[in-house]
Simulated scan of single mutants.
Amino acid sequence: MTHNSLIDRYKRYLLLEKNLSKNTINAYLTDLQKFNAFVEARQLTYQNITYNHLEEFVAELHDLNIVPRSVARIISGVKSFFRFLVLNEYISDDPAELLEIPKIGLKLPVVLSLEEIDAILGAIDVSTAEGTRNYAIIETLYSCGLRISELTHLKFSDLFFDEGFIRIEGKGSKQRLVPISDIAIQKINDYLLYRKQKKVKKGNEDIVFLSSRGSAISRITVYYYIQQYADAVNLKKKISPHVFRHSFATHLLERGANIRVIQEMLGHEKITTTEIYTHIDRNFLRQEIIEHHPRNKKWDDPTPTQR
Rank of each mutant, 00 (worst) to 15 (best):
V178E: 04
R213V: 06
R167E: 08
I49A: 04
Q287R: 14
K174T: 06
D206Q: 12
P241T: 01
Y142W: 13
E17A: 10
N19K: 15
E97P: 06
Q227G: 13
F81E: 03
S127M: 09
T221W: 03
K238L: 08
K297R: 11
G256T: 03
Y142T: 07
L114C: 09
L252Q: 00
I137G: 02
Q186I: 08
I220N: 09
F209Y: 03
V233T: 04
L210M: 08
I168Q: 05
A119K: 13
T272P: 03
L235I: 07
Y229E: 04
R245H: 06
T152Q: 06
T2M: 13
Q228N: 11
H293Y: 08
P68D: 12
F209N: 01
K202C: 13
L64T: 15
L235E: 06
N36M: 07
H251N: 02
S113Q: 09
A96C: 07
H293E: 08
E100S: 12
L6K: 07
L193R: 14
S173N: 14
N189T: 12
A119P: 05
A216K: 03
L108N: 08
I137R: 01
Y224S: 11
Q227E: 14
I66H: 02
H62Y: 15
E254D: 12
D158T: 09
H279W: 11
I226H: 01
R219Y: 01
R295N: 10
P109H: 09
D63Y: 14
Q287V: 12
A41W: 09
S173I: 06
R195C: 12
R213S: 12
I124G: 00
D281V: 10
R282W: 13
L235F: 01
K79R: 14
Q306E: 15
R245G: 01
T45L: 09
I120L: 06
I74V: 09
N283M: 12
E130P: 02
I289W: 07
I104T: 15
R245W: 06
N48W: 05
Y51H: 13
C144W: 01
L32M: 02
I166Y: 04
Y277E: 08
G214R: 02
L99S: 02
A96M: 06
E56R: 13
A184N: 05
K270T: 10
H53A: 09
R176M: 05
D93L: 13
R9S: 10
E205T: 11
M1D: 14
I138V: 09
E288M: 15
Y191L: 08
Y191N: 08
H62I: 15
P95K: 04
L177G: 07
K11Y: 05
A230G: 04
N26V: 10
A96H: 04
Y28P: 00
R255A: 08
